[in-house]
């Protein structure tokens, strides 16, 4: 696959503080790549450097093989969807969407043609004469996306575009965005701190912590084979066990809880049931270990009959292939 964006040893310092130590990353054409990390991990700074709003302290960014560090943002062939949309409050929906084409002096007929296309794609046709303040959050978000994609950018940068929306709407828009990306074939670079969102949408996820990409891989790789303690704990829930000089990570859904009386299999750990939480599709069982100061979380199918008593002594086990060994 062709590389559309290449970050080469890109470094960013604000004053004396290094926000991003030299970092390299290749992003393939047409891919949905997510930069995932807690706030302050440098993901937005990285995105803003790609967009051209921040200058790398050193290193080079290549777009389609061309270095762009010296290219101002208004000449870069990519567009951004801003965190709080940054719609122009004094323009109608239509004027907002057309702004980019107007700036590039695209012929009026073509402007109209593309406008209709994008309005249909984002289902904004009926709202075209409204002002941004007359729109709901979800509608504003669609205008922000329409305003960006009408320019047919090579790359679309999205900075927590769903961050300001409520949970249900976010779920729906995640799928919509993913489909949009597939249909348009535009490369998406998506910044979020929401791991669920990243898992649901991305082809690849770059998990960032303190300016460093801790792991780059498919959602599956990231979830099943985390390479660092940070990734193991940031993505999903995980149980950590100390094992000689290393740490073992086991996902709650991989932990099996045994009755101590049943005998047979030798449990890997023993403990007492501390709490049980019913969440519908699954039941969370918290087990206080006897040998360690650790509480282990195990998942059980929600429709299984509840057989556990609080305080009951149980054994814990898991398959060897389900444990991930991490360096301390």
């Amino acid at each position: 696959m062709k590389t559309i964006i290449q970050l080469h040893e890109v470094e960013k310092q604000f004053g004396q503080q290094t926000v991003i130590p030299p970092l390299s990353l290749a992003i393939a054409e047409g891919e949905f790549l997510t930069l995932l990390g807690p706030s302050g991990c440098g993901k937005t700074t990285l995105l803003r450097m790609i967009a051209g709003f921040e200058q790398p302290t050193s290193g080079e960014i290549l777009l389609d093989g061309q270095p762009i560090s010296q290219v101002p943002p208004y000449k870069r062939d990519m567009n951004m969807v801003f965190q709080h949309y940054a719609l122009f409050p004094h323009m109608t929906v239509e004027e907002n969407i057309l702004f980019g084409l107007k700036m590039k002096k695209v012929p009026a007929a073509e402007q109209q043609h593309r406008l209709e296309e994008v309005l249909q794609l984002t289902r904004l046709g009926e709202l075209r004469r409204r002002m941004p303040r007359q729109l709901s959050g979800g509608q504003q978000q669609r205008v922000a996306i329409a305003r960006a994609i009408i320019n047919n950018p090579k790359v679309l940068l999205l900075d927590e575009p769903l961050g300001a929306l409520d949970y249900q709407l976010r779920k729906n828009l995640q799928l919509e965005l993913k489909n949009l990306q597939k249909n348009l074939g535009i490369t998406f670079i998506y910044v979020t701190h929401d791991q669920e969102e990243a898992m649901a949408m991305s082809d690849r996820i770059a998990v960032m912590n303190r300016g460093v990409i801790e792991q780059l891989g498919t959602p599956q790789e990231i979830y099943l084979r985390p390479k660092s303690l940070f990734v193991a704990t940031f993505i999903g829930e995980n149980n950590l066990f100390r094992h000689r000089d290393a740490i073992l990570a086991v996902r709650p859904e991989k932990v099996k809880v045994y009755k101590m009386a049943s005998g047979g299999e030798q449990p890997r750990r023993t403990g007492r049931i501390a709490d049980i939480v019913f969440l519908g599709s699954l039941r969370k069982i918290f087990i206080q270990l006897e040998a360690e100061e650790t509480t282990v979380l195990a998942h059980e199918n929600g429709d299984a009959d509840p057989v556990w008593q609080i305080g009951e002594r149980v054994g814990l086990g898991w398959a060897a292939e389900d444990e991930v060994t991490l360096p301390c």
């Binding site: 101002p72 951004m80 940054a86 122009f88 004094h90 960006a148």
Partner: peptide, 26 residues
């Protein structure tokens, strides 16, 4: 809001045109 200006740059407005279309009206 500075982000509105950044949005204008992002959409291809030169600093002068961003001033004329965004800063001045706002």
């Amino acid at each position: 809001d500075r982000r509105k200006l950044e949005a204008a740059y992002d959409l291809g407005a030169s600093p002068w045109r961003a001033f004329w279309h965004i800063t001045l009206p706002l």
